[in-house]
Nucleic acid binder design. Sequence first.
DNA 1: TCGGATCAGTATGTATACATAGAAGAGCCG
DNA 2: CGGCTCTTCTATGTATACATACTGATCCGA
Lengths: 250, 250
Amino acid sequence: MTSATETSQTRRAELSLREAIADGSLGAGERLSELTLTERFGVSRTPLRTALVRLASEGVIEAAPNGGYLVRAFSTEDLIDAIDLRGVLEGHAARRAAERGASPRDLGAIEALLVAIDDLLVAETLGEEAFAAYVDLNARFHAALIGLAGNPTLAREIERVQALPFAGPSAFVGVQARLPRARSILIEAQSHHRAVVEAIREREGGRADALMREHARLARRNLQAAITDRERLDGLPGVAFIRDAGKRRA
Amino acid sequence: MTSATETSQTRRAELSLREAIADGSLGAGERLSELTLTERFGVSRTPLRTALVRLASEGVIEAAPNGGYLVRAFSTEDLIDAIDLRGVLEGHAARRAAERGASPRDLGAIEALLVAIDDLLVAETLGEEAFAAYVDLNARFHAALIGLAGNPTLAREIERVQALPFAGPSAFVGVQARLPRARSILIEAQSHHRAVVEAIREREGGRADALMREHARLARRNLQAAITDRERLDGLPGVAFIRDAGKRRA
DNA sequence: TCGGATCAGTATGTATACATAGAAGAGCCG
DNA sequence: CGGCTCTTCTATGTATACATACTGATCCGA
């Protein structure tokens, strides 16, 4: 293998495709021309098609009826559904973690993440880098929480739902960076984090479940705030997806 | 296109592969040789590889670290996790259906399925064909129920979880065909069906949720019965998957 | 002028050729 | 006799060639 880049062509095609869709340079509903994409990404059709099949099975793109693929368009309702679904799945993960019990070591690791997030939030205002750090820590917290459930199947499904960028744990936190009450929303989120860890420690499964569902509603709230203030959105990751898809199955 | 079979090579490869895995002729953990499969299925490597990528993204097979694919091996715990996950997702679907309300027309359609199932269960003993009819009606009931939630994202995820054959709505009902209390278990399942439709009609979201979770436990009970009576299993769909996968991620 | 049909261009689905990396076996050395 | 290494072979990942089906436009006829 050419150790120059040390990455397979398929991976390159997949990452390039994901990026192009996430940043909106391939817009929602747009038809994907294989030939165009091959020269744009510098790979041949074979690895590109592999990437297309993968993204299609994730739901980021969809197969057109008469061949080819389209960038999937999501309606506002679709986004809400996906966010709620994440809440349900993470809620179940938290419940299972509480029921089966977490080791002091695992609890310690996750609490260390909470302390790190606290450290970020003591500042009065949060700059770009602080937000980036928050997004990173938040993602790690959620991953750790899911790990506590000890259920690889569940973890896999959550990962899949999050493959839709707007459904990730930090979806639309970027909205908060441009809102005056940014910090207060993050503080509320962190409050949920602390409470769910406590619930897991105390083996309160129902409470842990409810907390994570409510936690997902924060993302939904951000989404709705963003919709009412549409111009605020430009350039935010995941925004490229928001376009009312024509028909919604009844 | 060759109208002889009127089906794409990719679809043929995918179906053949699924079937070979489900019936156990490709056993859990087995390495998949592309060349062997191409001549076995009568397709070339390109559509076969497309099918492999698809099944890998579904979790039926997995990519080997150094290239190629393996039939995925599932431990008993994995099966339980998948069944529980289905319960959580279907429970959420039922809850949403109850909360948003179902039209009399939709409720009528789903109740017609219940009546059809009732008709099957009045017989004292159930033959092979009655079981087949039950499996079909049961699958349609579950599909209709999920449809009532009006959430395509959720429906899609449930479909994905069920792609693991042992997690489908009728998983391990075949076990019941060989158990003395076969009919009584089906009657209990049907009781759940009726109750959940009633809960949806009465907009009792929490009840509907709990019922579907409990309903999934029936499959789990069947699974456990099957495990204790392992020899009873042979030839059952989904059984080919049961093989304790070596390590389970902590 | 509008509708339809035919034809050209193009894109996708499929097959196959090629290169490289991993695996297996044989031979050599200790 | 055992272990290590080299070689050969095979399988996968990638590139490309080919065939067919769809898309679009243009031309003809009503």
